[in-house]
Structures are given as structure tokens and as C-alpha cells.
Design a protein around this nucleic acid. Sequence first.
DNA 1: CAGGATCCTAATCGATACTG
DNA 2: CAGTATCGATTAGGATCCTG
Lengths: 127, 127
Amino acid sequence: MGLPLRRSKVEPPPSCPLTACMSLLHGAWCPNVIWYLSGGPRRFGELRVDIPRVSARVLTARLRELESKGVIARAVLDTSPPSVEYSLTELGEELVPALRSIVRVGTRLKEQRGHVHNTPARRKMAA
Amino acid sequence: MGLPLRRSKVEPPPSCPLTACMSLLHGAWCPNVIWYLSGGPRRFGELRVDIPRVSARVLTARLRELESKGVIARAVLDTSPPSVEYSLTELGEELVPALRSIVRVGTRLKEQRGHVHNTPARRKMAA
DNA sequence: CAGGATCCTAATCGATACTG
DNA sequence: CAGTATCGATTAGGATCCTG
């Protein structure tokens, strides 16, 4: 027989807002869209330049998705040819600090890459 | 002719730590793994209980991945049958605040769901 | 310019069965 | 207990072409 299962010491993300919110950041592009919109409203074509490797199809899909979730707003400008401007909603703005703290860790991660990190590579312990 | 492209007002996530770090949170399960490990070391079987819908195959894959990136540590306990305990490294701990701020937004998101959010559903603007 | 339509590839995941 | 192996389903995403 093995060890008894312990109860988790942390509560589950209550009814999973973690998952709910991660769905706002899913895939490769959502975080970038929100990141670039954090600098102010931005048009479709501008976002394509900001995020060079995204295809129009996928960018459209992500924008629609984020719009339907209330994170970004879409405004059709009355120009010719027509432009469409996207911006963060109030709710979307709340994601920015989270994103920034993620970037901070990502930066540290890159710094650490290359030299040995403190993972004691597969240590063995006595129980 | 249309509007000229504006320069982005935010810098790109410098050489993409955003993407680098998001890769630590990718897929459906990485964030949950880190979340549950934030309460202290946790064994494989315990994590499977914490995160009910993850398959052994995928959980293994994620754990290996996070281990190789230096975010979690793996320790084989000398019991019979053998147990394996996972824990956050120092670097992994840094992800926790980011995760918490994501959860905060997720919670707000759930609160707002159902009643009208402030997206002015596809307004039109004059330019 | 902003995107819809179509087609296709690669990655990801769950289920199931099996092993040291 | 802590995995590994195999399979088939789902999905993100790219490329290309086309339109209001």
C-alpha cells in the first residue's frame, strides 16, 4: 500500500475562474492582441503589423471571440475604405496587469535560460 | 486611400517574454498544475484528483514540460509502491502572483456574465 | 481595408490498455 | 503508484482566394 492521498492545501480556483479567464488568453495570439491594445485603440491592419505571424483568418477569429466575451470593443470608422478600430473594454483593461506580471516572469525565464537553474534535476529523496 | 498606419504605443513584449512565459501556461492544464502546487508539494495521483478531467498521459506530458523549463521539481520518494512528488521551484513560485491576478479577472468575468457588459455591441463611429 | 470561404496541416487531448 | 503506448477525435492555425 502507498501513501494516503492528502487533501489539497489550496482551494480550487472557485468554480474555475482560472479556466474561465485562461480562455481569454488561450492560443498563441489572444495575449498579444490584448497586449497591443493596451497601448490604445488599434485597427485591424495595425494589429497585423504588430503581430506579424498571425493570419487574417485567425486574427479575425480571436477578435470576434474576445469581443463576444466583453474584453474588447469593435468600432467601425466611417472612412473609405472603411476602417475598424478595436480597443479594450473596462474589463479588458483588468487583464493588463495580469499580463504584465506574466511578462515579468517570462523575462526572468529568459535570463535564467542557459545557466543552470535551481531545479535539482531529478533528485531522489528518502521518505 | 485609407488611414495611415500608426506606430504602436506599447513596446512589443521584449523579444517576446510574453510568448515565452505563456508557453508555461499553455494548454488547459499547466495553470492548474501550478495553482495546485502553490499549496505545497503534491504527488502525481493527488494532482489527478485535483484536476479531475486531465488524463494521465497529458498530465505526465505537462509535468515533464514544466520540469524541463525549471518551473517545477520532481522528487522520487523511496516508498513502496514508489511515489513521486512535484513542487514549485523558486522560479515557479514567481508565476503564482500572476496566476492569482488572472483568477481575479476570471472571477469578475463570471460575475459580469449574464448581465449586459459595457461593450457597446458594435457601435458605429464617425471618423 | 477588413474579413469571409475553403482547404489542409500539426498539435493537443481523452480513452483505453498495459507495465515496472 | 506512476507512468507508457496506441488510437482516434478535436482544434488551432496557415495559405490562398475572393468580396463589399
